[in-house]
Simulated assay, not measured.
Amino acid sequence: MPQFYLKNWSKDGNSIFVYSLLVPDSRIPYWNHRKIKSTAVWNDFYTRNEGEKEIDDFEKWFDREFEAPVKMVLDNLLKGHSLDEAESKKLARFIGAQYMRTPARLNNLMARWRTEMPVLFEDVLQKASKKLEVNPQIINSQPQVSEEAKFLPIKVTVVKDMNKVKVDSLIGKGMYLFALKHLLTKMVSVLEKHKWYVIHAANGVSFPTSDDPVICLNFNSEHNYDFKGGWGKKNGNIIMPISPTRLLITQIGSNMPLARLDHSEHWSKFFRKIIIEHVHRYVYAIEPQKGMLAINPRRIDAALFEKEKSIMAGWHEEQMEAEAQLI
């Protein structure tokens, strides 16, 4: 998560209050004051191998294409300026990137792939095998591969004497990087078409943010909603806090009363509630928030805490080794 974004919740520009939803011990305080540079960090999350070298081109791509262009836009919004069309597009691209580049999105995508990929590959293989039966010469042809598809950890083997195709794949970092590149290159234009509004918090209400800050909300009423919305999905809202006093919202045919949201104590409390409900592991705030246990109580589980810590520590090396063995 960009440090310049989290600094909007910092009084000194260096530190922030953090509430953890998973802790190893009940004696740990509910809120901790942490340095921004050492929180919301997963080392080598995007680092990949290219030949013999490790490269971190995704971080540079994020900064160049999504984060650096939006810094002034966010500053202007916090000063009360309105958006022009070019600024709105920069904002939309930034929101798309923050939606995709989180551990929560990684977990969500990997769970989907484990279910969907076997069925998808089976369908593709059946079609490929039928084409081989009709025209065996296509074995010798060079398939066209898109730029982002090069990130996919897939090994394709053609059994010539049987006119069969075999595919081995690895669900992990490579597939996630492919999804990032594809969605933020080909699909982010969907977000650029939405109109974004700034909602101000009522006096006495402070918006936190989280490690999963972009909320795709399916809203029917304040008591009937879920977080299964999507980009361009009808009857939905996309919401992202940008400071303790402001959040961004776009509506896609939703029945949320937009004209009554600004400076409303009622709706400010609702938005604060869903921000906290939507968190993956961490809530970030300018000051400790009251009522956390009623909205999203933390879990005390030393074994799970150590397991997740171990997964994060070994993620890069394990993924690179698995991809090398596959290919």
Rank of each mutant, 00 (worst) to 15 (best):
H33N: 15
G236W: 01
K234P: 06
E306Y: 08
A285F: 11
N218P: 00
K130A: 03
S141F: 10
I154F: 08
S146E: 15
H278P: 02
S310N: 14
P297D: 10
K273Q: 11
E50Y: 12
K228I: 00
F45H: 07
F17H: 14
M187C: 10
W61T: 13
K11M: 06
T102M: 04
V70N: 06
A294Y: 02
S310C: 07
K60D: 12
L74G: 02
Y282E: 07
A149T: 08
E192V: 04
M162H: 12
K131D: 06
H200G: 00
K234R: 13
Q319D: 15
Q251N: 14
G51H: 11
S254N: 09
E54M: 08
N107H: 12
R272H: 07
T47N: 12
N140I: 00
E85C: 01
I28H: 06
V41N: 10
G314P: 00
V190E: 11
K35H: 03
V214M: 02
T245M: 05
E122G: 15
R64W: 13
K53S: 14
Y176F: 14
D63L: 03
L184E: 04
G232A: 11
V165I: 09
H81P: 00
I138R: 02
Q289S: 10
H182G: 00
V214Y: 05
R114G: 07
V70Y: 08
N49H: 10
K90H: 13
S10K: 04
R114W: 10
P213S: 03
C216L: 15
N237V: 14
S243A: 09
P297V: 06
A324G: 00
N218G: 00
T245L: 01
R105W: 11
K173M: 07
L74F: 04
S146D: 14
N14V: 07
K307T: 11
W9S: 05
A86H: 11
V158K: 09
K90V: 03
R112K: 14
A202R: 11
V23Y: 01
G291I: 10
V159H: 13
T209C: 08
R34C: 03
F305M: 01
W9A: 02
G253A: 08
T185N: 13
V205Q: 05
I238F: 01
V158N: 07
D301W: 01
K273C: 05
I300S: 03
H223D: 12
Y284N: 03
R64N: 15
L293G: 14
T250M: 05
N14E: 15
S264V: 09
R260Y: 04
P29L: 08
V124R: 12
E87A: 13
L152Q: 08
F121S: 09
L177Q: 13
K130T: 01
A302Y: 00
P118M: 04
K173E: 04
L125W: 00
S15W: 02
P143Q: 02
N14C: 10
